[in-house]
Design a protein around this nucleic acid. Structure first.
Lengths: 257, 257
DNA sequence: AAAAAAATGTTAGAAAAATAACACTGAGTG
DNA sequence: CACTCAGTGTTATTTTTCTAACATTTTTTT
């Protein structure tokens, strides 16, 4: 790679830094060279940019990452998630202020928000914010802080208070583990504060988990099962969750989606 | 469009709700139909999704929007911005904590951050956060709040205090208007608090503007020109800015990129 | 300035995607 | 039962993208 090639790559990379794509033909015009030269530049570079059907884009951008890979057989999981979210969505009513947790479980829910006139979504996850930010009918409140790439979410010391200051109708919480005795847990400790704040603030608390999380314990506990009003889950997990009874608190209603 | 077709479309749309793409072949497998049927579904739909080189994606996602259109001759503007940012980048040193303003002016700067070992970026703009979040060597602090789609940024009441709590080395500020007498201004009032906080907090304050902003006044003033240590600008604007002298405060140094 | 090397342009062919055409299926109907 | 027709699958054709080969131009070296 020579100097001019590097210059062109830098120019293109900067053009794409803010997101977006650029067609090969326009990249060529922009740099004043032939399309072939652009192809060669990109091919000889460090792989920061790639072509997708004649359009140049940042390779690292998670927006372009395939959402669904059959080889990893998330396929069966996906259908379940979509059905879970349909069940969860049935709790939403016009004008609600929703807290939406991080992770991938609740992603299908966001696609269902477009059918309402006006909603407000509170979240601390970047992927949720990007999806919601594109919806014209949904107001978005993002709780900021230090970014944690592992969960695509933000954490900060005053996250708890920040959530408490908001008027949240319904909290949609996901979890990495649900144990009847030990409680509900997730992977990352910075997720605990926002989840607990949402549970303490929201009028209605909805846990969305599939059967694969049942009996699993993860590093960070954030609540007992009784802290939720409803658990939206699948047919496989429902009987186990319903067996829970006779505690000091009212057990959550189990909804099979 | 029939019922089953609508079901498939909804399933795909939900799969893409959280951002990302899905290849035609995998979309076909996911829905259990042939690729041709998926094509027909999408073609007959409302245009919410499109194909780009065999990959299905949300059409509305700005991440997929062409960044650069020769017909609108942003080309000349773009080169200027890139050179401005190169000048601005020369102030960055290893380990810095940078405040990066919203807007498009500073976007090319983000592509130049990859060359450092370790940096921290503070921002209140979603597009900046997405670009920085993809950089493994840069820690990201996003200042949250209510999302303003017009500037792709967040605003909140305690934005000023939130910025003041951070140790910011260098603040890179953009502006929509610079007037020698009236001061520096932007379009949106919610941008004032974070900009002022960054100016009050940072050790070194860098204004990045091109000549087109000179003599322009926008609704929201946020600082006098003297609040900056350096103005990075182009050759056309430099002489006008240098004419400014003899005020009560030290005028900023003018750097021509 | 001539030769060599590198960079870029042009063209041709292979691969993939987009489109069109036609064939199959299965539910409903006279 | 034969017929229709919407829905879908299959195959063929066109278009576009990708890759390779070779020609031309520019830069560097001797």
């Amino acid at each position: 790679m020579n100097g001019r090639s590097a210059m062109r790559l830098a120019r293109l990379q900067d053009a794409l830094a803010g997101g977006g794509t650029i067609h090969l033909s326009e990249a060529a015009k922009l740099c004043g060279v032939s399309e072939m030269t652009i192809r060669r530049d990109v091919a000889a570079s460090d792989g920061a940019m790639t072509f997708l059907g004649g359009h140049l884009m940042m390779a690292a951008n998670p927006q372009f990452a395939p959402v669904y890979d059959l080889d990893e057989q998330q396929g069966s999981h996906y259908l379940a998630k979509q059905r879970l979210c349909q069940g969860a969505a049935s709790f939403i009513t016009e004008g609600d202020t929703l807290f939406i947790d991080c992770g991938t479980t609740l992603m299908p829910l966001l696609g269902m928000l477009g059918e309402f006139e006006e909603l407000t979504v509170v979240t601390y996850a970047l992927n949720v914010a990007n999806a919601v930010g594109a919806l014209p009918n949904v107001r978005l409140v993002l709780l900021g802080g230090l970014y944690h790439p592992s969960s695509q979410s933000f954490g900060s010391g005053d996250m708890y208070d920040a959530v408490r200051r908001l008027g949240i109708n319904k909290a949609f919480i996901s979890a990495a583990g649900v144990d009847l005795e030990r409680g509900v847990s997730c992977f990352h400790f910075h997720e605990v504060a926002p989840k607990q704040a949402a549970l303490d603030t929201a009028l209605y608390r909805i846990l969305v988990v599939d059967a694969s999380k049942l009996g699993v314990v993860r590093p960070a506990f954030f609540a007992q099962l009784e802290a939720f009003d409803v658990v939206v889950t699948d047919a496989k997990a429902a009987p186990v969750l319903n067996a829970r009874a006779g505690g000091t608190h009212q057990p959550p209603r189990v909804m099979v989606a």
